[in-house]
Simulated scan of single mutants.
Amino acid sequence: MSMTPQQLVEEAKAQIGEIDANSAAQRISAGAVVIDVREPAEFDAGCLPNAVNIPRGVLEFKTSDHPALANKDVELLLYCKTGGRSALAALSLQRLGYAKPVSVAGGFEAWVNAGQKVVKDTTNFGG
């Protein structure tokens, strides 16, 4: 059966946890690992505090060697521009055995619209 990209995203969202931007801010303060699955140019233009950039296209291949993904029991907070890529990423990580991947509903756009802090100098971040 053929599916559209939007149908794939909706299917993923039905199987993962999603939280809003304000809940995401609380979880970041509590120490959640933040993974930005956007492309590097998007990340460099602005990101969530403490975010690590691991683009969606390589995420599954980085799970064994990226320090941010070393602990499968840590709470992972994933986001992209609007929530589609991060939903697909959360489902992939869940299937790979990660216990707590959640996606930020509405992604970076929802984060900005909620008035949350955006970081633009990412030179000290991992990724």
Rank of each mutant, 00 (worst) to 15 (best):
E42Y: 02
E42R: 08
E42H: 01
E42C: 07
F43E: 06
F43V: 14
F43A: 03
D44V: 08
A45S: 12
A45Y: 04
A45P: 00
G46L: 02
G46K: 07
G46Y: 01
G46R: 03
C47P: 00
C47E: 01
C47T: 15
C47N: 04
L48C: 10
L48M: 15
L48I: 09
L48Y: 00
P49W: 01
P49N: 12
N50E: 13
A51C: 07
A51P: 03
V52S: 13
V52I: 11
V52L: 07
V52R: 13
V52Q: 10
N53H: 06
N53P: 00
I54L: 06
P55Y: 07
P55N: 14
P55W: 11
P55V: 11
R56L: 11
G57P: 02
G57S: 07
V58E: 12
V58F: 10
V58T: 14
V58M: 15
V58A: 07
L59W: 10
L59Q: 12
L59H: 08
L59A: 07
E60G: 11
E60M: 14
E60K: 15
F61E: 13
F61M: 15
F61S: 13
K62L: 01
K62D: 00
K62R: 14
K62G: 03
T63P: 05
T63F: 05
S64Q: 13
S64M: 09
S64Y: 01
S64P: 00
S64V: 02
D65M: 04
D65Y: 02
D65C: 04
D65A: 05
H66N: 06
H66Y: 02
P67I: 03
A68P: 03
L69Q: 01
L69P: 00
A70M: 07
A70D: 05
N71A: 09
N71R: 13
N71E: 04
N71K: 02
N71Q: 07
K72H: 03
K72D: 00
D73M: 09
D73Q: 15
D73H: 11
V74H: 05
E75V: 05
E75H: 05
E75L: 05
E75R: 13
E75T: 05
L76K: 03
L77S: 08
L78E: 09
L78K: 15
L78W: 04
L78N: 13
Y79N: 09
Y79W: 13
C80Q: 06
C80R: 09
C80H: 01
C80M: 02
C80E: 02
K81W: 07
K81F: 07
K81H: 13
K81Y: 06
T82W: 00
T82A: 14
T82L: 08
G83T: 14
G83V: 15
G83I: 14
G83N: 11
G84H: 13
G84E: 11
G84N: 12
R85G: 04
R85V: 10
R85F: 12
R85H: 08
R85I: 04
S86C: 06
S86V: 03
S86T: 07
A87H: 07
A87T: 13
A87N: 13
L88I: 15
A89C: 10
A90E: 01
A90D: 01
A90S: 12
A90W: 08
L91Y: 09
L91F: 04
S92G: 15
S92N: 14
L93N: 05
L93A: 05
L93S: 00
L93Q: 03
L93C: 10
Q94N: 08
Q94E: 10
Q94Y: 08
R95F: 04
L96G: 02
L96W: 02
L96M: 15
G97F: 11
G97A: 12
